[in-house]
């Protein structure tokens, strides 16, 4: 009896090790495939006109299609940020106009790029994964492959270019809308005057912060597009697997965006 328990314990440890080993192996396999796949994406287009047409379509889908949700989220985040900062600073010696300054920098440095891209990973990323996965399952990708089309390039490159062009625009709009949201939640309700809020927004402005916002926007746009397209392009199986791929696209994009956010913050503020 005394010997059985350690034996069972050791067996379960070995099983755990094997599972962890297999998971690591799968992670390396996917990482390697993802990296190698990029050599197929950036190839000379078969027809510039077709790629251009597809890029414009994607720009419309990502830019115009996502603007309402970005607008809604940004305005409320800006509003809530101001209200909560006011609650925390009320009764302190910090002048009220500082809240305008804090909201502006929070929007530019962190909230606009990160929250917008996390939301876009859910909206645009899952849409891309589902679109490519559906094309894979309906043999559309096979049909294009047989025609001689470089499907990795034709289906993915326009999405990446469109995201790199449109997401920074959405992030900039988000920052502006967030600040306006802050204004609308505080000035009409009497938390502070319009002059105080505007003074705060115009104080201590550092243009480098805008550069940081654009760096984040570009990196996050690339992550959410390429990861989502990878999940959709290589999907295998049926509708359940397609749903799982779509979920993975969002989850992995979100995790990688948050990790990249930390790394960019470390590098650009060092």
């Amino acid at each position: 009896m005394f010997f059985v328990r350690p034996l069972l314990f050791r067996r379960s440890i070995n099983k755990g090790r094997q599972t962890a080993f297999r998971m690591n192996l799968r992670l390396f396999h996917h990482f390697g495939t993802y990296i190698l796949w990029h050599s197929q994406i950036y190839k000379k287009p078969e027809s510039h006109a077709m790629y251009y047409k597809e890029t414009i379509r994607q720009m419309y889908d990502i830019g115009i299609g996502s603007f309402p949700i970005v607008f809604l989220i940004s305005i409320f985040i800006g509003a809530v940020t101001v209200v909560q900062f006011y609650y925390q600073m009320e009764g302190t010696l910090i002048p009220p106009y500082y809240i305008g300054y804090i909201v502006r920098d929070m929007e530019i440095i962190e909230l606009a790029p990160t929250i917008t891209c996390l939301v876009l990973a859910g909206k645009v990323g899952s849409n891309m994964a589902a679109e490519l996965g559906g094309m894979r399952q309906k043999e559309h990708i096979d049909a294009m492959d047989i025609m001689g089309v470089n499907t990795s390039a034709y289906l993915v490159m326009p999405k990446i270019i469109a995201a790199l062009l449109m997401i920074p625009v959405l992030v900039s709009a988000s920052a502006l809308i967030g600040i306006i949201g802050g204004y609308l939640s505080s000035v009409p309700t009497g938390l502070f005057t319009s002059a105080e809020f505007i003074k705060g927004v115009r104080s201590f402005f550092i243009p480098y912060n805008v550069f940081m916002m654009f760096v984040k926007a570009f990196v996050f746009a690339y992550i959410l597009t390429s990861v989502s397209c990878y999940q959709g392009y290589f999907v295998k199986g049926g509708s359940i697997e397609l749903g799982e791929a779509s979920t993975r696209a969002v989850v992995y994009s979100d995790i990688l965006i948050l990790m990249a956010d930390y790394v960019i913050a470390l590098i650009l503020t060092a």
Binding site: K138, E139, D142
Partner: peptide, 19 residues
């Protein structure tokens, strides 16, 4: 392979027409 594939036509079981 790409040049060869331009000489190939294929009809799929599920047609694979772009919806």
């Amino acid at each position: 392979l790409r040049k060869l594939r331009m000489k190939v036509g294929m009809l799929f079981q599920g047609n694979a027409l772009f919806d």
